[in-house]
Design a protein around this nucleic acid. Structure first.
Length: 326
DNA sequence: AATGCGGGGGC
DNA sequence: GCCCCAGCATT
């Protein structure tokens, strides 16, 4: 991984919850386009998001942009300690420790998903490494490996070990340099650690999503006001389907104005949010005159809404524009 | 301590 | 299909 502070930071942010193979090409294009903190700070948020598109977790891009603005305003130098780094937007315990140890040589241990697994197995700890005690135990174990070795190399090597040898399903213990002292290996079944996440039951939902397009090809969006998910994001009006009523009638009921044009029902779209599995059925209408809408509603170009939204909007755009109605 | 946030690859 | 991924912010 890069030793330059800016490059290191960008790559670590991209690597959050994203496999490294996927990061590399995007990282190279990103730093070509934005070579340093100043260039990134000078860019528009829209350009940054465009360079990020496809990577997911877009909040990372917005936070990185904010971080660049802060760093550029402060002289263009990144702080060098994990404690200071963690105060910057988008930087948590993992990223702070990664940059501090790999770029600045600070002896601070880190834990990602790989090291959580490796540590839990070596220690055969009953505590989940994602919990408070288990996490502390793993970090202490990593710190103990830094005796004399460069801290960044220790952190990096352990992550690499987890990614290539001590894998979730079929750990290759024969090839593992830690097999001697591994308590889980000694017990016989390394995959017993860490304890499996308790999985929440999957909830199936069916949503009716009303896509109204005006003469400028803008879509009617509504800011999601309540509910546990998507709050504050802008999407076409939607609601859970009441199977007792015609879809067209329900679609009309979701709109803030009357529509006399015909409503077409399109092919369903799948979307998942954590433990919810959503089948979204687009209902589509094209109106022939602009309509003024109240606060909480907006007209926006669906390909570039310039409003906070969910990837569901992109799925709708792709689906509605390519599929015929049914 | 839980929950939301994307998208792709492996099995 | 389901699980996981060089996590963070918010509640």
């Amino acid at each position: 991984m890069p030793r330059d502070p800016y490059h290191s930071l960008v790559s670590e942010l991209m690597a959050q919850q994203t496999q490294l193979d996927r990061v590399v090409p995007r990282f190279e294009a990103f730093v070509r386009r934005f070579p340093d903190f100043r260039a990134l700070a000078a860019a528009s948020r829209e350009d940054v998001l465009e360079a990020w598109s496809g990577l997911g977790y877009y909040r990372r891009a917005r936070l990185l942009h904010r971080l660049a603005l802060e760093v550029a305003a402060g002289g263009g130098e990144l702080p060098s300690s994990a404690a200071e780094l963690e105060r910057l937007p988008g930087i948590g315990p993992y990223t702070a420790a990664a940059v501090a140890s790999m770029v600045f040589g600070e002896a601070v241990p880190l834990m990602d998903g790989n090291i959580a697994r490796v540590g839990a197995r070596v220690l055969a700890s009953a505590d989940d490494p994602r919990g408070k005690e288990g996490r502390a135990a793993v970090l202490e174990w990593v710190r103990g490996l830094m005796n004399g070795a460069p801290p960044g190399d220790v952190n990096e090597a352990l992550m690499e070990l987890g990614a290539t040898v001590c894998t979730p399903n079929r750990p290759d213990c024969v090839r593992c340099p830690l097999t001697e002292g591994c308590r889980a290996r000694c017990e016989g079944d390394p995959t017993a650690y860490p304890p499996p996440r308790q999985t929440r039951a999957v909830v199936d939902l069916r949503w009716l999503v009303v896509v109204v397009e005006d003469p400028k090809r803008r879509w009617l969006l509504r800011q999601v006001a309540e509910g546990p998910i998507l709050r504050g994001l802008w999407l076409p009006p939607f609601a859970e389907i009441d199977s007792g009523r015609p879809l067209e009638q329900q679609a009309l009921g979701l709109l803030p104005f009357d529509v006399t044009q015909s409503i077409g029902i399109s092919k369903p779209i799948r979307h998942s949010i954590t433990h919810r599995r959503i089948e979204a059925i687009p209902a589509r209408a094209v109106i022939d005159h602009p309509v003024r809408v109240a606060k909480g509603w907006s007209w926006a170009d669906p390909a570039n809404p310039r409003l906070p939204t969910s990837s569901l909007l992109g799925k709708l755009l792709g689906s509605v524009s390519t599929s015929s109605s049914v």
